[in-house]
Every structure is written in C-alpha cells, then in structure tokens.
Simulated scan of single mutants.
Amino acid sequence: MEDLKTAAAPGNGGRLAGKSCVVTGAANGIGRAVAELFAREGASVVATDLDGDGLRRLAEQLPQAVSTVVGDVSRDEDARRMIAAAVERHGRLDVLVANAGVIPLMEITEAGAEDWDHVMAVDGRGMFLTCKYAIEAMAGPGGAIVCVSSISGVAGQRGQAVYGPAKFVASGLAKHLAVEWADRGIRVNAVAPGTITTERVARLRDEPGGPEYLAAIEQLHPMRRLGSPGEVAAAVLFLASDEASFITGAVLPVDGGYLAQ
C-alpha cells in the first residue's frame, strides 16, 4: 500500500479555514469535486482512494492543501490509516466525507452473492469503518460527518437490487449516528444525489445506447437535466461547515426534484 503523501498547509481563508478533513473516494467524480472545493475553502484535505494515479493528479493540482492515502475503505487497517493520517498530519480531524463506493446496476436475477458482498463491503462496511474511526478521532473536540448516499438510498429504483440497499446503509447510518453522538458535538448528515455527470456517466454519451439512456434518465428528473459533481460538492460543503451547526440526521436530496415526485 502507498502511504501518506504530505503537502503544505493551505491558506487561512474560506468556510473551512483551518479544518482538517478526510474525503474518501476522492480520485474522481463527486469525491474529487468535494476535495477540490474543500481545498479552495481553506481546508487541509486528506484525500483517499484505491486509484493512486488519480490521487497523485489531485495532489499535483492542489499541492498546498491536499495529502493522499491510497487504500481500500472496506479493509479495517486501511480505513483506520486514512483517519490516522489526518490526525498525524494536522493534529485532529474536523470533517469526514464518506464518499467511497461502487455503483453496479443489475436486477436481482442478474446478481450473485459475490456482487452483493462486494457492494456491501465497499459502500456499507467501508462507510461504517470510516465513520467509526472518524468518530473515535472526533470524540473530544466534536466534528462533522457527511455520508454520500443516493436517491437509491431513499426510494426504490429499477435495476438497483444490489446498489440501492447499500445506499440505504448510508442514509440509515447517518440518522443513527446523528442521534447517538449529537450530545457530544458530532453532527452526521447525508446527501442523496440524483444522477450526476461523473466521468463514468459522461462516457455513456460515446457508448452504444448511451445517449438514449441518458436522455431517458434526464426526463426522470423534474429539472430535466443531470447534476454536476460540483453541485453535490456545494451541498456537502454546507453540511460540513459551521453554517449547518444546528443540522444533524438530515438526508439532503441533490437530485433536481427526483425525490419530490
């Protein structure tokens, strides 16, 4: 495993000025957008992912604000090491964004036990482990956790018999931990994105049947478009910041109205 890559501390301005933050699944997509936005808002970010090349590109882009840890959130020792990196580098942990996940789309008759185990390991166990070690690190000074769930973690959808239940873990974990740790100064919330134009979704436009699929998905969102990673990152920033100081246990849709139907 590649160990911590260090970088200098960021400047003092911004809504997360001086905050020590961990963002999992930060090499691409929503996680990368969150790490970039947090860095611009003054945070010291430990970005984690299995994709070491993606993390290196992120750290090169933001060398004054971002450190990296390559690891697997579903492995106990890796999840512990991700949180420990922030504490060792910055003296504490203020914010965790539990974002790492995999997104297989299949009906239950197409899925096997190995598919279920893999998704639950990353999206379920990985979120549990990173939240567990983050709370242990925050137990004295308090802090904020934002779990990245999905519209599939709030409402049922076709073709998501494996992925959807794993995202219900994210939504449920946020609510239970919020109640359990509120009196000790730890806020736990979740965001529930709709379909977002991550790198994988963007590639669908060049694949057979992809444009038609995306057009159909867009029509399911009342705003008649897909969201961007930056729009999700903005919601995560709000929940992580002191502006949301009286908000805990919330699951905030970032879905163009999908869940309002």
Rank of each mutant, 00 (worst) to 15 (best):
S152L: 13
G227D: 08
V66A: 07
K167V: 09
D255G: 09
K5P: 06
A7Q: 11
L237G: 05
V46E: 07
V34G: 01
F38I: 02
R92K: 15
V146P: 06
G227N: 09
Y213A: 12
E110P: 11
E60M: 13
S67G: 14
V169T: 12
A216S: 13
V66K: 00
R125K: 15
I145K: 10
I196W: 02
V162T: 03
I196C: 03
A98W: 03
K175R: 15
G25K: 00
A178S: 10
S20V: 00
A244Y: 05
A170T: 02
V251Q: 10
P104D: 10
F238I: 12
V45H: 08
A39L: 07
P253L: 14
S67M: 12
G143N: 03
Q157G: 07
V73S: 03
G185R: 12
G194K: 06
A137C: 07
V148E: 08
H90V: 02
Q261C: 06
F246T: 13
H176E: 12
A216C: 07
G14T: 07
G126E: 01
S149V: 03
E180V: 02
G156P: 09
W181K: 14
K19G: 10
M120W: 01
V97D: 06
I247G: 03
A190I: 03
Q157Y: 07
